[in-house]
Design a protein around this nucleic acid. Structure first.
Lengths: 337, 337
DNA sequence: CTGTTAGCGCTTTCAT
DNA sequence: ATGAAAGCGCTAACAG
């Protein structure tokens, strides 16, 4: 059945294997393998013969076959949610680039109701992935166990301490909450508030808590205006409540929502700086001139490096104690506050 | 060396294989394989025995090993650029979801100067991918040949007809350019212009050409205001030129840039509807109340389906003639025009 | 329907 | 430094 020779109409283009290269180069398959393995023991002469033959034949190592023996592929799962928030996109892009820069391949897995993180990570386990990076909601705990059983490390981004046994990278939320309050006061605000989806995310909650703690420390009464989701629409719709409360300084736990708040305030006739607004993340829109939002830069490039560092050290030392890295934040002052 | 039994301190958690399941279920490895292969010939009884044993042992098929025999993995490369444009993000997310829904796994490959599409696609060829989807710039032609040689199908999104032998999905750019002109005139504009990075992208160019063609057809003189890149910043900076030309109706070839134009016009004192603006793509920001941009919805959900359809039919019929699918556009009327 | 056998393409001992 | 041989986990072909 299996035709060795193409006959013109044949499908299944015959792939070039290490065997072909070995024969062409007059060496063994082992030699070919070594030639393509970093710091393997091959003479420069052999290596060149192999490279030469490989180029002529158009040979490429089959990494899938390689990972069969290695017990581990160079894939890393990237589990993401909320990509409508431009910050999540930035984060994703930086993570993907950082992974590729270190010779891993990111498998993109957006989550949703149908494809919750548990299901999606279960799928990943079929590919002997080197690790899983989670920016979406934290998965149920049985997932951690399954991954541990298979020796697959997990890194959580901006997730809570309910997972003391998992490596995490978290934004310095206490710092931003704290500084946000100070900055709004310096800018002349008298009546502060924070807008946040409390149940919704760890970072969101922590930023709000830190903000309120700082207010209390300063003897200031400041309400938490709750929203269901930290997005543009909910920010927009929360504006009237802020106006009713007579607020003139508001911290939004992310920029995506802050843009909505600014637009909502404008509609309510309280735009143009009447209410000072501070956001978080420094998404591209924050610097758009319709907003010029004062915000906290959460540097996703350094964050991505932190994540990959955690991942690779976990791979090399599977039993090391779990670590937490903090991503520093920087206040970016613009017109909105 | 290789320890078969864990001794407590041992690494390399021993993975469960089909052999273990076969033994536990009292069947052959082939039976196990069949139990996990859709429409394979197994009795329900055997299948259940296998599932039972598999569950108890925590067995998962190793898809990497599977694709070694199948000669093809279920990975699909997703080559993307310009993810700062929210439309590209939407596109990406829809593609990823659509792939996953059909049991493919997207490998995310953002391109840039360091990682150009050629390099990146070359990498993909090591993974026996089922296909490559390209939303970034079209790769050099030798890539098409290499992929063809390996039997890896490519689908191009919004790329030109310089590639008649490749499957493509393109937005109905002629339609949007045409309608944009009509709509601006209906809205009362007298002096039209189009802002576009002509060299930059196929869709960009086509939309602009169609717009200008329609103007000419109607006997209207309309300039093309060129920009280097179709992004917010360049749109913003192009606004003064529009004002100087006395333009009161402008078509921006994408929303991302249109937002910049609107902000730029506002800064130049020509905001608030003095100049009618039509964008393209219907990104989330288009409906933000700071913009309320009239635009063309480019439905990435249907586009994604078109792409995957093209991909799977190409996989099953590698020698079929190349196809082009058009994604329909819909005018969304908002305040800006 | 089921088991046996022979690989898929690569890496890795183990000798030499 | 190199080659022979065994094997990673799975599936397809062939008998029965």
């Amino acid at each position: 059945m299996r035709p060795r020779e193409g006959n013109g109409a044949s499908r299944e283009p015959r792939r070039v294997t290490s065997f072909d290269v070995a024969r062409a180069a007059g060496v063994s398959r082992a030699a070919v393998s070594r030639a393509f393995t970093p710091d393997a023991s091959v003479s420069e002469k052999t290596r060149q013969k192999v490279y030469q033959a490989a180029k002529e034949l158009g040979y490429r190592v089959n990494y899938l076959a390689r990972s069969l023996t290695n017990k581990r592929s160079d894939f890393v799962g990237l589990v993401a949610a909320g990509l409508d928030n431009p910050f999540r996109t930035q984060q994703l892009e930086h993570l993907a680039r950082a992974l590729i820069a270190r010779n891993y391949r990111p498998i993109l897995l957006p989550t949703s109701k149908e494809a919750d993180s548990a299901t999606v990570i279960g799928q990943l386990l079929h590919y002997a992935v080197s690790g899983v990076i989670i920016t979406s909601d934290a998965p149920p705990s049985h997932i951690f166990e399954e991954c541990a059983a298979e020796g697959v490390p997990i890194v959580l981004i901006n997730k809570g301490e309910d997972f003391p046994f998992v490596d995490r990278v978290v934004s310095d939320d206490r710092m931003s909450g704290y500084i946000a309050a100070d900055h709004l006061l310096e800018a002349g605000a008298k009546r502060l508030a924070v807008v946040a989806g409390a149940a919704v995310s760890y970072s969101s909650r922590r930023r709000a808590e830190a903000f309120l703690a700082r207010c209390q420390m300063l003897g200031i009464e400041a309400p938490l205006v709750p929203v269901a989701i930290n997005d543009y629409r909910h920010g927009h719709d929360a504006a009237p409540a802020l106006v009713d409360l007579g607020i003139d300084g508001v911290f939004c736990v992310n920029d995506y929502m802050a843009c909505g708040v600014l637009d909502g305030l404008a509609k309510a006739g309280r735009g143009g700086g009447a209410v000072r607004v501070v956001g978080h993340d420094d998404i591209p829109q924050a610097s758009w001139s319709a907003y010029e939002l004062t915000t906290f830069l959460q540097p996703c490039d350094v964050q991505a490096e932190q994540v990959i560092d955690l991942l690779v050290s976990r791979i090399s030392e599977p039993d090391a104690v779990a670590r937490v890295e903090f991503t520093p934040v920087t206040l970016i002052k613009r017109r909105s506050a």
